[in-house]
Simulated scan of single mutants.
Amino acid sequence: MNVTAPSATGVRVDWGQLPEHVRRAMEARLGAPVVDAVTQRGGFSPGAAARVRLADGRRAFVKAVSAEANPGSPLLHRAEARAAATLPPTVPAPRLLAVHEDATWVALAFEDVDGRQPQVPWRAHELARVLDAMGELARTPGPADLPSVVESEGESFRGWEELLDHDCGHCRDRLDPWVRRNLASLADLAAPWGESASGDALAHGDPRADNMLLTPDGRVLFVDWPAAVRAAPWYDLVLILPSVRAQGGPDPEEVFTAHPVGRDADPDGVTATLAALTGYFVRQSLRAAPPGLPTLRPFQAALGVTALAWLRTRLGSRLP
């Protein structure tokens, strides 16, 4: 399969372009003025994302977004702040340092990490590091303050049902012929996903290459936690493999069944969850592009293709 997902790209705002009151508020919370800032281009967030150096020599990573850039993005930043505050200290993630909120803006500051994103197309040794780290994360109990996966994704994972709705006929015309022929069966297949995907393990909820950092000392740190949930230990592995495949990585089924958390998973529950995830990607890819996120829909479309191919592999001849 030759599918290439576009880079995660948001419309970035440099630190100096933030409103003065936001910059001053973050500097007050960090305890020193910012004397240097380098904008980071990766990731979908439409706003500021900068590694900053403070006057006292300390460093931080600052991200900020306004409702004017994208109405949903401040909600994600608030969710990330709540999640980051609940993560156990053993979780490989940068620590939250400061939060600023006002009527329009939400800004967060985290520890600055000496690391880089995995290279894409994926390299085998870097993927192996990430998969090992995900295995460790899967053994971490999820904090009780985090939502369950069903509470978080119960509506999002109804993509096939939405495509069956009579108001979505124009969407169905754009579907893969196999999907269009089996739409009702796919909705039925995905319906019980929550029964199997539920659990007490900590799940990042949105693992992708641009949401992790590889450090020079061999660690893998996971960043951007607004979608963190309590779920089955294998949930994050199902989520990441379509994007790995779409960014030059190996066959998802081979990786999943070889991974310790994949080997221990209930096959039917995994298939149901993968069906729900695929429906999400396909349905989202057909929506209008959200403000400030020019590559999100093409990215979701590419993941829909790879997730669908994986799902058909797992289904074999069950659907015509």
Rank of each mutant, 00 (worst) to 15 (best):
R158N: 07
V150W: 09
P177W: 01
R180M: 10
L164A: 05
D176R: 02
V150A: 14
G159A: 06
G159Y: 07
S156H: 10
V149M: 02
G159R: 03
S152G: 04
H166A: 15
G169K: 05
E151T: 09
H166P: 08
E153G: 01
S156K: 09
W178A: 07
L163Q: 00
R172A: 04
W178F: 09
L175T: 04
W160G: 01
L163M: 13
W160T: 01
S148D: 14
D167K: 13
S148E: 08
E162F: 04
D167F: 10
H166E: 15
S148C: 07
W160R: 03
H166I: 13
S148L: 11
R172P: 03
R158M: 09
H170A: 15
V150Y: 05
L163H: 01
S148G: 15
R158V: 11
G169L: 10
H170N: 11
L175A: 04
L175G: 01
E155F: 12
E162W: 06
D165N: 13
D176F: 00
S152C: 07
H170K: 05
V179H: 02
C168R: 13
G159I: 10
R172W: 04
L175E: 07
C168S: 13
R172Q: 11
L164C: 11
R174W: 08
E161C: 00
R180F: 06
G159H: 03
L163R: 01
V149T: 04
D165T: 02
D173C: 06
F157K: 06
F157T: 08
L163G: 01
H170D: 15
H170G: 13
G154F: 12
D176W: 05
C168V: 07
S148V: 10
R172H: 07
C168H: 12
E153I: 03
R180W: 06
H170W: 12
G159Q: 10
C168I: 08
E161T: 00
E151S: 14
R174Y: 03
D173S: 12
D176H: 10
D167G: 13
F157C: 05
P147Q: 11
D167C: 08
P177D: 12
C171M: 09
L175D: 06
E153Y: 05
G159S: 06
G159V: 05
V179G: 02
L175V: 07
R172L: 08
P147C: 13
R174Q: 14
R174N: 11
E153P: 00
P177S: 07
E161N: 01
D176N: 10
G169R: 14
